[in-house]
């Protein structure tokens, strides 16, 4: 079977290397195509996805690690793959939604997944009005920030106003959330099909945002059944068989804070365990699809 791996703009070399090494253990042919070097042809009514002359829709399975900067081109590439016979565990619409932190929370909340009170506004005045409904302190998030970047906290309207001035300069929409005390950790549920890996991520000293790329620590933990089911539900709603669903626990309850389209595999803590699990899942699922299509 043929496997295609498409890497996005912020891809770390070590993660790419691990994915490719693991892919070779399961698939007969493995091709790596950086997103920036892909070409799309819409000629005489036919759409082709090409990398150095190779038709990328001729593969059996594909995994893509795209980031917010890749949205405009990446959503098209995914959409073409989604409409082909290639098994891709990632949906183009899910990529768009997870690139938008407020939209993610909005879509998942209506399916009874607990989320922090969240808002979205175009103008600073509307954002201030809504911040009073949420109650201070509030968390301000750039819609497509990642890795804990673009997340700020304001304890009062006075602190919120200068942040709004900055967002206005950058023509950013204003997304705010209730501040949930994290007890210096969050729980990442790494979903791969029906398997969910629970990872506790602890913040570095003096930091309230949990993210291991910012210097935190990570360890496997046993998940509660409820959290596991909510993580699976989120991945199903978004059409992402592979994703990370992040929760914060507070006072015995948890809330989903965001879903990550291209989760890091934290090699410093887990070695190649997670890329191996990913490839195992992709291989098994591709084989199932292929044997079903045979009849």
């Amino acid at each position: 079977m043929k496997f295609l791996y498409i890497g996005g703009s912020n891809e770390k070399q070590i993660v790419k290397q691990m994915i490719l090494e693991e892919a070779h253990k399961f698939f007969d042919t493995v091709l790596y195509a950086p997103l920036s070097k892909i070409k799309i042809e819409c000629i005489e009514g036919k759409t082709k996805l090409l990398f150095k002359g190779t038709d990328l829709t001729s593969f059996d399975a594909c995994y893509a690690r795209f980031f917010s900067k890749d949205l405009m081109f990446g959503e098209i590439v995914l959409d073409i793959l989604n409409h082909s016979d290639v098994f891709v565990p990632l949906n183009s619409e899910g990529f768009q939604i997870t690139n938008h932190k407020y939209f993610t929370v909005k879509v998942l909340s209506r399916e009874n997944i607990p989320v922090p009170i969240s808002s979205l506004a175009v103008s600073p005045q509307t954002a201030i009005d809504m911040s009073h409904k949420i109650g201070y302190p509030i968390v301000i998030k750039l819609l497509s920030g990642f890795g804990g970047r673009g997340v700020m906290r304001a304890n009062s309207e006075e602190e919120f106003k200068p942040v709004l001035d900055t967002l206005k300069v950058f023509k950013e929409f204003i997304s705010t959330q209730e501040y949930v005390e994290s007890n210096n950790y969050d729980i990442r549920c790494l979903v791969m099909g029906e398997d969910v890996f629970g990872i506790k991520r602890t913040t570095p000293a003096g930091e309230w945002r949990t993210n291991v790329s910012g210097g935190g620590k990570a360890e496997f933990v046993e998940l509660s059944n409820a959290m596991k089911q909510d993580a699976l539900k989120a991945s199903t709603i978004l059409g992402l068989d592979v994703c990370a669903v992040d929760f914060i626990e507070s006072e015995g309850k948890y809330k989903l804070i965001e879903v990550n389209f291209a989760p890091g595999f934290m090699p410093d803590f887990f070695g190649s365990k997670l890329p191996n699990a990913l490839m195992k899942f992709l291989y098994k699922k591709t084989r199932e699809i292929k044997s079903k299509n045979r009849f």
Binding site: L35, C42, D70, I76
Partner: peptide
């Protein structure tokens, strides 16, 4: 909001569009 996405969407619905090549960078 994405002209290239418009073209691939129309093309996949068999609607006539001008022949187009789309790149994510100037590499190739």
């Amino acid at each position: 909001s994405n002209k290239a996405f418009q073209l691939t969407t129309l093309n996949s619905h068999k609607i006539n569009t001008p022949n187009t090549t789309i790149f994510g960078s100037s590499y190739f």
